[in-house]
Each structure stands twice: as structure tokens, then as C-alpha cells.
Design a binder for these strands. Structure first.
Length: 549
DNA sequence: CGGGTTTGACCAGCGC
DNA sequence: GCGCTGGTCAAACCCG
């Protein structure tokens, strides 16, 4: 396994710059720092220019300069501290990884080779990873592959065709057309001229009793089909918030477990979204960013992803014992669709505590398939959860107790807590929320470490995803780099303690973030939505009025 | 009556 | 080239 211990923060910085963002799209905090640098460098000049017309003015100018310098120094110190923390963290990662590698190397290697998945598990896992693999029998995966279940979030990464510097929306509009059926004439044909850019899809697997996930958007069902190998029909939805919105989603019940709802998002909204829809879009866009950042080298990847608006979603009833992985891009009909799966289904071992599983198909053949990645946010407990409007709710109640039943909440919320040892804090806090009833499994951290450290793409993607979810306000300039993520994590230190304590969940952090000066464009202030309203997105994948072709 | 859903038909991509 | 499959269209239908 390659551990990028060489990947210093500087390297990450380079990655950041090469990967994406133009300077003006950087994180507000970074912008702040950058903008203040010159002031620090040339304080005298400003003073001179101020002109000592009056002693008061001069003194005021000096005082202001002093403040600016002070602030700059403080920021620099913070930055240095962040970098130091990051290095420390890396060292810890490395040691943990090596330690773990010595233990389970052979087993893990074999497992990963077999499944072509890299699993990152945070929290307790009732069954060792090797068993997890067993939980996902090949037949099952194959079946799901056959089903072609994939969700998508796609965007066009190339801007060469656009004569002007296109914003993400424009890119999206162009890109979306590529996915249209050629022979069909709709207003979408206008955008059909775009290149068939590699499409990223985001697949959300969640246990849901409702026909669809409530993602905050309005959808119109435009088709339904029986897919091979799945008795449940697949419903096709189109975003109706804006007439020309290219976003589509597919909804289908899992054949193996009808309680699992598989929703695939594809496309980017080219219109403002309701607040209730921003969180999900951020997540899916970041996930898609993760995919594409790993599958191509376009510097626009993360930038584009950062511009996405949100789709919000809710899910429920994570009590079922199966966990599936849809990690192969081939599961969709077109290999041009890299697919990232957010698996919010439950742990196969119902007795095990909730955990987070990040799986990444890192052994893809880049010539044939883009990478496909699966993020599994798993809970084994039978609680209804929803993630709407940036609020995470528990049994439809605001999630504000310690009965943490959703790993993504744990992870994200604790990331906010992360200081000197983010990962350990994440883990320990996670454990605390689970009543400390089960000791941590070393391999969970190791596995997480392994994934993060072994795959730079995953690093950037994870950063993008988390930063997006954290809602730091850099939605318009998501660098999608680990460094940025780390910075954001560290900036969590700046949050009032309550922000890291309240609910201890991502949603709480999201809710707090806007109050942070850096949060800007995203607001997660609406109350949680109820579970999906069948009115706007009523296509019921569960209704078995199957249409036969 | 407007908007959403249903559903048969059409089209394209892919594998053989 | 053919058949299969996924994805989409659009007319008919439904509903508030």
C-alpha cells in the first residue's frame, strides 16, 4: 500500500491549486488570509500614503495598521498551527496505518483485491472487515450490478467549448444535454450539443418507507421501467423547479431489500434551490466531485462541484440488516457514468453499532471505467433518520441527544471537534456517543486511514464532500483538497464550544456554520422537512404497476 | 384547467 | 446485424 507520507501539506496545497480553484474561488477564509498578506508585507507604505496631514489621522492609520498586522500575525499563527496539526495528524495516520498493516495486511489486501473496494470504517463495526466482505456476497453485488442501480450527479468538466468563462451552471447546462436521448426533441436538445462528458452519478441508498427521499426539490415523474433483475420498477424523475433544469433522478427499490430505496441523482441544478434542497446537493456534488477528481485531471472539477446547489434528502428506518455496495460503475448502463454511492443502509450485523463506511473502488481500469466510489453511512439501529435542510433529525425529531444512530452525523459533527487529533477525536467522540459500550476496533481507524492516505483522489474528494457538508460557505469555491478540509476542520476550533457540542452532529454544525463569518452562501436554517411529500415527488417505486416494454 | 402520473412506443448503446 | 436493455418521449389519463 502506498502511504503518501510524502504528501505534506505543501503538496496538498499544490494539489489544491493544480486541481481546481482559481484564486477567487478559494475559501473565504483563505481569501481573507491572502488578502491580508500584502498589508502585512508593506505596512509602511500605507502609512506613508495616508499622509500625515493631521496627527490624529496618522495615529489612526497607525493604529489600524497595527490591528491589521496583529490580525495577520494571528492568522499566520493559525495557519501554521493548522499545518502543524496536519503534519501531526499525518504522522499519526502513518503510524496507525503501519501498525494496522502489520496486523491485517494480508487479509485486507486480499479482501480489497477481491472486492475492488477500499473500505473506510469509522466507529465500531460489529463484524470485521473480512466479514463485511462476506456480508456482501459476490452474487449480491453481481445482482446489483445487473440491476444497473445507480444514481447520478453529473456535470460537465470541460469548458473549452464555452467561449466565455463559464460558471458552473452554464457548464451544467451544457453537460446535461449530453445525457439526453439523441433522437428526442425537447427543449433539452438545445443543450444536447454538448460533449458527452463523463458523467458522475451519485447514488444514495437509504432505508426509506416513503416512495422517495425528500431532497427538497420538486420532481416530476417522466417514466418508469422495469429493470432487469429487479421486480421493482425504476422511476425516472426530472427536476421541475426550473423548466430547463437538467437534473434527473432515478428511484428504485432494492431487489434484495425492498426497504432500501436507491436514488440516483444526475445533473446539476441550473437554478436557485430552495433552502431545503441545498444540503443534499452539496453532498452529492461533493461526492461527484470526489468521483471525477479521481477520474480525470481537469482543474475545474472541484470548482464546478463547489458550485452545485443542494439536494436535500431524508431517509428512514435504518433497521434492516443488509448492507450493499454499489461501487462498480458498470452497474449503470454506461461505463461513462462514474458512480459514487452514499450508502445509508444499515449494518449487516444488526447488533453492531452504527458505523461509517467509505468504500472506494480504487482498482478501476481508468481506460474502461472511471472510478466508482461508495460512501457508506451506515446505521444499524432501527431509527428513522432524516437529513433535511441541514438538520439531522432522529425519528423525525431534531437530533439533539447522544443516542447517536447515524454515523455520518457522528463523523461530521466530530470533525468539527477535531483539534490536535481529528481522527482520534472523531473516533473517541463517536465512541462516547455510543455509551462507550464497545471498544474501538483498531482496524476501523486503520481502514479509514488507509483509504485516505492511499488515495489522493479520495483525499480531495473527501475534503470536498466534508467541506461541502460542513457548509463553510465556500460553496462557490470548493478547493476540494485535504488541506482545505483540514483548515476547515481546524477552523472548527474557532467555533464556540456549543457549536461542536450541540447535537454533535453534522446538521448542528451546518446550522451553526452560517453564524460563522465564513459561512456564506449556504444557509441551513429551515426546520427539517417531513419525510417526502408524495405530492411533488410522488413517483412511487414501490407501486408495482410495472410497465413493460 | 393546469400540473402530475401512467404507459406504450421509440431510440441509442452495448454485447454477442 | 440483431436482440436486449436502459432511458426518454408524449399522448392519455388522473386529480385537485
Amino acid at each position: 500500500m502506498q502511504f503518501p507520507s510524502q504528501t505534506s501539506s505543501h503538496q496538498l496545497k499544490e494539489d489544491n491549486t493544480t486541481q481546481s480553484s482559481p484564486p477567487d474561488e478559494q475559501h473565504p477564509r483563505q481569501q481573507e488570509i491572502l488578502m491580508q498578506e500584502p498589508a502585512l508585507a508593506t505596512p509602511e507604505r500605507s502609512t506613508v500614503e495616508a499622509g500625515p496631514k493631521e496627527g490624529d489621522e496618522l495615529e489612526n492609520a497607525k493604529a489600524e495598521m497595527g490591528e491589521v498586522i496583529e490580525e495577520n500575525q494571528r492568522l499566520k499563527m493559525r495557519l501554521n498551527r493548522i499545518l502543524n496539526d496536519y503534519r501531526t495528524l499525518q504522522m499519526q495516520f502513518q503510524s496507525i496505518v503501519e501498525e494496522e498493516k502489520a496486523k491485517n495486511d494480508g487479509e485486507d489486501e486480499e479482501a480489497m483485491e477481491e472486492s475492488e473496494l477500499v473500505s473506510l470504517s469509522l466507529g465500531r463495526i460489529g463484524i470485521p472487515r473480512s466479514n463485511e466482505k462476506g456480508k456482501v456476497p459476490k452474487t449480491l453485488k453481481e445482482e446489483e450490478d445487473k440491476e444497473g442501480l445507480s444514481l447520478g450527479l453529473e456535470w460537465k468538466l470541460e469548458t473549452s467549448k464555452s467561449g466565455s468563462p463559464s460558471n458552473s451552471v452554464e457548464e451544467v447546462v451544457k453537460e446535461e444535454g449530453g445525457g439526453e436521448s439523441k433522437g428526442q426533441k425537447t427543449n433539452r436538445d438545445e443543450i444536447g450539443e454538448q460533449n458527452p462528458a463523463k458523467k458522475a452519478r451519485v447514488c444514495v441508498r437509504a432505508r426509506c418507507d416513503t416512495p422517495t427521499l425528500n431532497d427538497g426539490c420538486q420532481w416530476r415523474k417522466y417514466g418508469q421501467k422495469i429493470s432487469k433483475g429487479n421486480p421493482c420498477p425504476r422511476a425516472y424523475y426530472r427536476c421541475t423547479v426550473a423548466p430547463s433544469c437538467p437534473v434527473r433522478k432515478q428511484v428504485q427499490r432494492c431487489a434484495q431489500d425492498m426497504s432500501i430505496l436507491i436514488t440516483t441523482y444526475e445533473g446539476i441544478h441550473n437554478h436557485p434551490l430552495p433552502l431545503s434542497a441545498t444540503a443534499m446537493a452539496s453532498t452529492t456534488s461533493a461526492a461527484a466531485s470526489m468521483l471525477l477528481s479521481g477520474s480525470r485531471t481537469s482543474p475545474n472539477i472541484t470548482t464546478t462541484a463547489a458550485d452545485l446547489h443542494g439536494i436535500n434528502f431524508s431517509l428512514s428506518d435504518s433497521s434492516q440488516p443488509n448492507q450493499y455496495y454499489l461501487s462498480h460503475p458498470s452497474l449503470s448502463s454506461s461505463p461513462s457514468h462514474p458512480t459514487i454511492t452514499l450508502d445509508l443502509t444499515s449494518n449487516p450485523s444488526s447488533s453492531s453499532p452504527p458505523f461509517v463506511k467509505f468504500t472506494s473502488n480504487s482498482n478501476y481500469n481508468p481506460h474502461r471505467y472511471p472510478p466508482s466510489t461508495s460512501l457508506s453511512f451506515t446505521s444499524s439501529q432501527s431509527n428513522t433518520t432524516s437529513w433535511t435542510n441541514g438538520f439531522f433529525t432522529y425519528n423525525n425529531q431534531p437530533y439533539n441527544n447522544n443516542r447517536n444512530t447515524n454515523a455520518n452525523v457522528n463523523v461530521l459533527g466530530n470533525i468539527n471537534l477535531g483539534k490536535q487529533q481529528p481522527m482520534e477525536n472523531i473516533y473517541s467522540s463517536f465512541m462516547q456517543r455510543n455509551n462507550n459500550s464497545i471498544p474501538p476496533l483498531p482496524d476501523t481507524i486503520a481502514a479509514a486511514t488507509k483509504v485516505i492516505t492511499a488515495d489522493p483522489n479520495f483525499q480531495s474528494a473527501l475534503a470536498a464532500a466534508l467541506s461541502s457538508v460542513i457548509g463553510s460557505g465556500s460553496i462557490q469555491g470548493n478547493q476540494g483538497t485535504v488541506e482545505n478540509l483540514i483548515q476547515k476542520i481546524k477552523w472548527g476550533e474557532l467555533l464556540p464550544p456549543s457549536s461542536s457540542k450541540v447535537n454533535g452532529c453534522a446538521s448542528s454544525f451546518l446550522n451553526k456554520s452560517p453564524a460563522n463569518s465564513q459561512a456564506g452562501s449556504l444557509m441551513f436554517l429551515q426546520p427539517p422537512l417531513p419525510l417526502s411529500s408524495p405530492k411533488s415527488a410522488s413517483g412511487s417505486p414501490g407501486d408495482h404497476r410495472d410497465k413493460k416494454n
